[in-house]
């Protein structure tokens, strides 16, 4: 189960999926198809192994675990917080199953705070799994409860106002980051 957020990972994960045995569920964030922020240099024959997260931005005060489009929200929000003197690490999971538990744990033990950002519903979403994992494996290192930001518990309405109210965005991720940092 893989979810790329950048063009290079889109290519690399697709190559691995097409060469691997068995089924790969490849989630394509169509919002990113022609988005400038998802553009990347793609090296020849690039391949991304399953179960390898990628630290898209290094930081020391807070770890954001994200995949798909919210990786970009997290990067934008981290940029803003840097101006306020806060250093945020953004871990792009890229692969949900297998999951790079090692990279997640290493990052949280370093920053002592964790926010999960995804487009999934917060209630019953995959972030609950991530929060539990961090709680179980990093409890003694945490300075704040693991927080989550994602979609509201309701279907996505077609009107843009309804859509915006439901889905996460950079402002919502920024607000969630601030809350975890302020705890």
């Amino acid at each position: 189960m893989v979810v790329p957020a950048f063009a290079d990972d889109a290519a690399g994960l697709l190559r691995t999926a097409m060469r691997s045995r068995g089924m790969t569920c490849y989630l394509e964030p169509k919002f990113l198809y022609n988005s400038k922020m998802a553009q990347a240099v793609v090296p020849p024959d690039f391949a991304v192994p399953f179960g390898k997260a990628r630290v898209r931005r290094e930081g020391k005060d807070l770890t954001v675990l994200a995949y798909g489009t919210p990786v970009h929200f997290a990067l934008e929000a981290a940029e803003k917080l840097e101006k306020e003197g806060k250093s945020v690490e953004v871990v792009d999971l890229r692969s949900l199953s297998p999951l790079d538990t090692e990279a997640i744990v290493a990052s949280v033990k370093k920053t002592h705070r964790c926010l999960v950002a995804h487009e999934d519903k917060v209630f019953g979403g995959f972030g609950g799994e991530l929060a539990a994992l961090v709680g179980e494996q990093c409890f003694a290192w945490l300075d704040a409860p693991v927080a989550r930001v994602g979609s509201e518990f309701t279907p996505v309405g077609f009107n843009r106002i309804l859509e915006r109210a439901t889905l996460p965005n950079t402002a919502k991720v920024l607000e969630a980051m601030r809350k975890v940092l302020a705890f």
Binding site: R19, G22, T24, L27, E28, T69
Partner: peptide
């Protein structure tokens, strides 16, 4: 091999 891709996310 079977890659099932599902475009997701924002409208």
């Amino acid at each position: 091999p079977m890659a099932s891709s599902v475009p997701t996310s924002r409208s």
